[in-house]
Design a protein around this nucleic acid. Sequence first.
DNA 1: CTTCTTTAATTGCATAAGCAACCTAAATTA
DNA 2: TAATTTAGGTTGCTTATGCAATTAAAGAAG
Lengths: 146, 146
Amino acid sequence: MSDALLQSHEFFSFLTGKVSTAISRRLQRNLKLAKLNITSEQWTILYHLWQEEGLTQQELANLTFRDKPSITRLINNLEKISLVIRVNDKQDRRSNLIYLTKEGRRLKEEGMKQSAITLSEAVAGLEIEELRTAQHILDKVFKNIK
Amino acid sequence: MSDALLQSHEFFSFLTGKVSTAISRRLQRNLKLAKLNITSEQWTILYHLWQEEGLTQQELANLTFRDKPSITRLINNLEKISLVIRVNDKQDRRSNLIYLTKEGRRLKEEGMKQSAITLSEAVAGLEIEELRTAQHILDKVFKNIK
DNA sequence: CTTCTTTAATTGCATAAGCAACCTAAATTA
DNA sequence: TAATTTAGGTTGCTTATGCAATTAAAGAAG
């Protein structure tokens, strides 16, 4: 790689989170505007549970690329606000299966809507082809360092 | 934008930080391996001071895309470990000018080296042209939502 | 079986982030 | 020049993260 690019602050700063920080903040703001009192991090957990309930904390950790302690605490907080419950797995008593509460399920529609809005704000004016390209490239980066 | 892409979990998850989290962790790890006891967040502050000392906290906030309280606390911690000092601006007594200590300057060489290593690990196997493309696209996203 | 190892989750400790409220100094304006 | 607004920083409160160490259950090896 060229030194010019290596030294490019712009390049490094987007890799180190400028864009994703901006997206999280925007999602957070949109959730708040829609009266959803959840953080963007909580959203990422709920997102996966909206697709499939009964995931273990380890599975959630893998899906959201967080470590186990982070998941423990996110689930603690989500339980505190009564959006999910831990159910001890009878088959494997080490595991907790995480389920949505009725209220947790109720948030799906608005939660998905706000994330879709956020995403469309983010990618406004971009071509599908550009998005595919960016995704492809970032995927390679991720594989390099995950 | 197509629904297929809107629903793409992969796409959303990289936008919400998978890649940048991985980069931060890798940088953190590389710094630690090189015996530099600073966090990746502290690195971003030092990076700008290595380019130019005497920046105000507000300028650092703008450069690193953080809010003012975050900078206050990062500078507190950097002062605590004696890498920077606050100097009250005589011209504008509201401002602090942030300078590196001798030790802070000493870390420049190794700090820049480790970030270069991290970056080259991240972009291994990618073409310059791909990187330019990704940067360009992410720049558009950032402008949309910053 | 009993020991050893691996796995799921939790806890402790330290750092970092966002938002709102606040303080003080500077700049504006009336 | 007094009153108001703006700008730079700090503090309080809450949430989130990483890493290391720990507990308890499950699985493997002897």
